[in-house]
């Protein structure tokens, strides 16, 4: 598996980036409509990283984050993880609940389900794009939420990848809302070992 990841051609990486771009674009549009704000999105990074370096993408393993996790079922099983700094999660909840900014300091069950729903909508929007390119039916699981250290949350997917190799293929996009009290988030799609080949074949760039 490691060999597969390390041998990806530029064209394959470009293709993955494009899928990520459309998927994240869909997700950003959905989020923008939900909170009625403009959202800036970075061009997706497709990176191949040693497993231990992945937490650095979000600022290090001990950074406090909110994570919404979903499994993707279908011909190309994958994991989706939406990570936000803790403060961004609180701000996002304020926006969704129509509360004054800065009021949320701890999540109640209603806030938690709002964040889960965000995860659901983002994942659905993203998977729509992935389904379009691959012609696969890809279904998300119900989402799960954790508020904890970035390393601890990421360990869930990294361990899974660790069974196959020492590197992770990470398709990652960063979101930022405009205005003060910006909401930042990272959206990760991490194909299961074996799924990457299936996706590459389906989008027509398998060597």
């Amino acid at each position: 598996m490691d060999e597969d990841i390390l041998k990806l051609t530029d064209m394959q990486l470009d293709a993955l980036r494009e899928v990520g771009n459309v998927g994240a674009g869909n997700a950003a549009t959905a989020l923008s409509q939900l909170i009625n704000r403009k959202i800036d999105m970075t061009v997706p990074q497709v990176s191949i990283l040693p497993l231990g370096d992945v937490p650095d993408v979000v600022g290090g393993p001990d950074v406090r984050v909110a994570g919404v996790f979903l499994r993707v079922y279908g011909p190309a099983p994958s994991s989706i993880l939406f990570l936000m700094p803790r403060e961004s999660a609180f701000t996002l909840v304020d926006m969704l609940m129509g509360r004054e900014r800065g009021l949320t300091e701890q999540l109640d069950p209603m806030d938690e389900s709002a964040l889960l729903e965000i995860g659901n909508i983002l994942a659905g929007a993203y998977l729509n794009a992935l389904s379009f390119f691959t012609k696969f039916t890809l279904l998300p699981s119900i989402p799960a939420l954790a508020m904890d250290m970035a390393g601890a949350i990421l360990s869930v997917i990294l361990i899974q990848l660790g069974q196959m190799g020492d590197h992770a293929l990470v398709i990652e996009t960063q979101f930022t809302t405009d205005g003060d009290g910006a909401v930042k988030g990272h959206f990760f799609l991490i194909p299961d070992p074996g799924s990457l080949g299936t996706i590459l074949t389906a989008i027509g760039v398998k060597e």
């Binding site: 393993p61 390393g151 601890a152 360990s155 869930v156």
Partner: peptide, 21 residues
């Protein structure tokens, strides 16, 4: 993650953000 270190007094060894590891 996926590493180990050894040391001696007076150092400390620290690992951040263990989840399922």
């Amino acid at each position: 993650m996926a590493d180990y270190k050894v040391g001696r007094n007076p150092a400390s060894l620290i690992s951040y953000g263990l989840g399922s590891c």
